[in-house]
Simulated assay, not measured.
Amino acid sequence: MSQNKKEGLFFTTIVCFSMVLFMSAYNLLLHGQFSLNNLLGGLVPGFIVAFLLDILVVATTAKKIAFALPLNKEKRIHMILAVSSCMVLGMVAFMSMYGVLVQFGFTENFLKYYMDGFIKNLIMALPLQLLLVGPICRLILSKARQSSLLREDNSIKD
């Protein structure tokens, strides 16, 4: 968990970028459209949408829900799993909608496409976040902390 705003922004950025990268590749593979051009072409807009949704909508709501759950809040792993799971549910809900709108637009089959995408994305995103991206990004955050890159007081002195 981040200890200040700089760490929070850094952690959010690396998690969001990683998840968008992996989930974009996954969805392109699912639809038989994977190529480096397609991946890179959708990466920046997907990251921007995901990042804004994360910081403006999902993170606050996910944390409120996670902290309201009847968990042992003293156990760090319980809180990490709760917050991460709530974040994944929220982000999958929004980003599946984004993906369907980009791919198909708002058609009469929107709900069918959305539900199909939501389920397939959740099946991939939850273990991806809990087992790979989350732990790796927490490790990166811890290494960045040790190097003092993320301290609030690391201003340049003349």
Rank of each mutant, 00 (worst) to 15 (best):
F17N: 04
P70F: 09
L29G: 08
V100R: 01
P70N: 04
Q33S: 15
C86R: 06
F110S: 02
L132S: 06
G46C: 04
T61P: 06
T12K: 13
Y98Q: 05
P127Q: 13
F11W: 14
M115F: 14
L101T: 02
L53M: 13
N109V: 13
Y114I: 05
L43P: 11
D54P: 01
F17T: 11
K120R: 14
L39V: 15
L29P: 03
Q103S: 13
N37P: 06
L81N: 02
L29Y: 08
P70T: 06
L128I: 08
L56I: 15
S85W: 06
L9I: 12
K73F: 03
S35N: 04
L53D: 03
F67Q: 12
P45W: 03
V49G: 00
M79H: 00
I80M: 10
S35A: 05
V100P: 02
I77Q: 00
V58M: 07
S96M: 08
L131V: 07
G117I: 01
A59R: 13
P45Q: 00
L53G: 12
I55E: 10
Y26T: 05
E108Q: 15
V15C: 13
F22H: 01
A59Q: 11
L130F: 03
Q129Y: 09
Y114F: 14
L130C: 02
N121A: 14
F67P: 02
G90P: 08
N38L: 09
F11S: 11
A25F: 11
V88Y: 04
A68Q: 12
V83C: 05
K64D: 11
A50G: 01
L122Q: 03
E74L: 03
I65C: 08
M95Q: 07
V102L: 12
Q129M: 14
Y98G: 05
V49N: 03
C86V: 08
I14Q: 08
E108F: 11
A25R: 10
M95W: 08
A82P: 01
L9E: 10
G42P: 05
V92E: 05
V83L: 14
K64H: 14
L29V: 15
N27L: 14
E74P: 00
Y98I: 12
E108V: 12
P127A: 09
Q33T: 15
F51M: 12
F17W: 09
L29F: 13
I80E: 01
M115Y: 15
V44D: 05
K120A: 15
L131S: 00
L28K: 00
A59N: 15
G90A: 09
G41C: 08
G99Q: 10
F118L: 13
Y113E: 13
F10D: 07
A59E: 14
S24C: 06
R76F: 06
Q103C: 10
I55K: 10
T61M: 15
L30T: 13
T13I: 09
G46Y: 07
Y113C: 08
T61Q: 11
A66W: 04
L89C: 07
L128F: 07
M95A: 06
M79C: 10
L40Y: 08
L30H: 07
I65P: 03
S24K: 09
S24H: 13
M79T: 09
L81C: 05
L40N: 06
Q103D: 14
Q33V: 11
G8W: 08
K75T: 01
L69T: 06
R76S: 09
M87F: 14
M79D: 02
P70C: 07
L81K: 03
M97I: 14
L9D: 04
A50E: 04
F22I: 09
P45M: 07
T107R: 00
